[in-house]
Amino acid sequence: MTSETPVISCKNVWKIFGQDPEGYLSKLPPGRTFDDIRADGYIAGVRDVSIEVSRGEMLVIMGLSGSGKSTLVRCFSRLHEITGGTIEVDGQDIMALPEKELIELRRNKMGMVFQNFGLLPHRTVLENVAFPLEMRGQDKHERRDRALEVIKLVGLERREEYFPRELSGGQQQRVGIARSLAIEPDIWFLDEPFSALDPLIRREMQDEFLRLQEMLGKTIVFITHDFDEALRLADRIAIMKDGAVEQCGTPDNIVLNPATEYVRKFTEEIDKANVVHARILTDMSATGEGAPVEASATIHALAKLLVNDTRDMIPVVDNGKAIGAMPRKAALDILVGAD
């Protein structure tokens, strides 16, 4: 959440699939919808997306299948060539990179985790994890040590010699995660990493993932179709539909102020008290009396206090410093789900 130059910055990115995407895009009049484009015989994978990811931030891109979220993240790593716009990674236009430098970029800066793991079936866990290191020509002993280190980090000790098919889904994804971390990437792409797993395992893996992130503090682009997962993990969420970003903001913000009807539909189902923090309800100019609450506390966590308290304005502190006060009624409305 520190703000220097963004790690990834994309401007007006288009990705169109079809016969002659560039030619089509150059003649595309503004305001054509996804369906219009499809009627012309093209598929708009990504439609005029501008988004930035700051260092150390976790951006979750949320959307249903076919919304273009996976396409967008593949544009970031240039697994897809974009049709229009620019994408900069650390201030470098990746579309201008020659193949060799692109490979260098992937070898040193990027890691990616895939929905169906994408493990190489003929290699053991150890060899899979060491694969990116092997590709960049690292010495055998060095890469073995490093691979064992990451395998330990994801909790797969004593499984190094197994082949992927001998592991459960959750374990396979741990291998996928370990492989993506082996080169110590700055940017970590995760494409629906937990979608192929059972609900119970998924929850466990999310916790594990949060623990890892706390330790490593990477810049993350995380893809999911699960709104709950997005809320649980994200610093910021971008909601996509038909290739375009509908809304991009913090979870609190999206839950409290859905920008479009489409976004509102997602927020309807969820328990807002679990998402909204005291901070966002705080009126900076107001002051309250009595015992303060923490800005980082969710409304759900404050439920008992809110119901029993009688004050209209409750003071809010952030790291022991008063930042304002929260109107109790607004918080109670969220708690009982009144709009």
Binding site: R74, S77, L79, I103, E104, R106, R107, N108, M110, G111, M112, F114, Q115, N116, F117, G118, L119, L120, F131, P132, E134, M135, R136, G176, R179, S180, I183, F189
Partner: peptide, 20 residues
């Protein structure tokens, strides 16, 4: 996905063919 995993691991073309 296996192909993409290979590319993201930084395989050159020959490495893609040989190892992936």
């Amino acid at each position: 996905e296996v192909i993409e995993a290979g590319k993201m691991s930084g395989c050159s073309r020959w490495q893609m063919l040989r190892h992936v």
